[in-house]
Write a protein that binds this DNA or RNA. Structure first.
Lengths: 115, 115
DNA sequence: CCGGATTAAAACGGCTCCGAAACAATGGAG
DNA sequence: CTCCATTGTTTCGGAGCCGTTTTAATCCGG
């Protein structure tokens, strides 16, 4: 049962995954960047700079810069909203999907090993 | 069953916890710092700078600086090894234990909510 | 059309982290 | 004692991220 995951096992999971990310991952994202990326891929679109800033409780330039760096890594892409050209719509990419797919597999694998 | 945690749910878990950490946590650790802290508290002591550097596949100054910053937050402490005074032994603190206890509870809570 | 509101980006100064290399302290073999 | 290996720290130059403020583009009510 998932309920049998107790706090110390949850910590062990976080440790194992974090260690793997630090040790092996070629793409090195900050906590905020990863949180932004996960929000883009898991929550309901559309995603705007302002919306993400509010969701993460950070300032808008934080989002803009994170999109800059993750965009140059081809993990996300931007386009102007045609209905309101002030808005920027953040979109997923193939590489971003693959990256998160690999991350999900890794977390799931660590969970299985703990039990 | 833990096996019922599929990759997409594992990602959702990482998202929920990361979002909570970014939004609410007063102590803002980098990925590497958190990985070091978890290693100190979950793996078998004693922990040295050299050992942590090897475990995390980073250079020694990274460990030294992380111990500096986390030490000033009272999350870890250092003392010289009396048997070999070249070594530094990294030790746990009360505040570090409480911090990780809270983190473990939060992760476990997110896991319960997903299922 | 105009002026205020809204949105994202750019500019700015400050802070932190990075790896490589130099450094200081200690241990240990001979 | 002497020399070299080992351990952790410090220094150095560079890169990235931070929040605030300013700028630029766009929308919309009157």
């Amino acid at each position: 049962m998932a309920a049998s995951f107790r706090p110390v096992q949850a910590l062990r999971l976080w440790h194992d995954v974090s260690l793997a990310l630090v040790r092996e991952e070629e793409i090195d994202l900050s906590q905020r960047q990863l949180a932004i990326l996960l929000t883009i891929y898991l929550e309901m679109p559309p995603h705007t700079v302002r919306g993400l800033a509010k969701r993460l409780n950070v300032t808008k330039p934080v989002i803009t810069r994170a999109l800059d760096s993750m965009g140059s890594l081809d993990l996300v892409s931007r386009r102007r909203d045609d209905l309101d050209r002030r808005n920027v719509i953040v979109q997923r990419t193939v590489r971003g999907s693959l990256f998160l797919e690999k991350l999900g597999d890794r977390i799931a694998r660590c969970m299985a090993e703990i039990h």
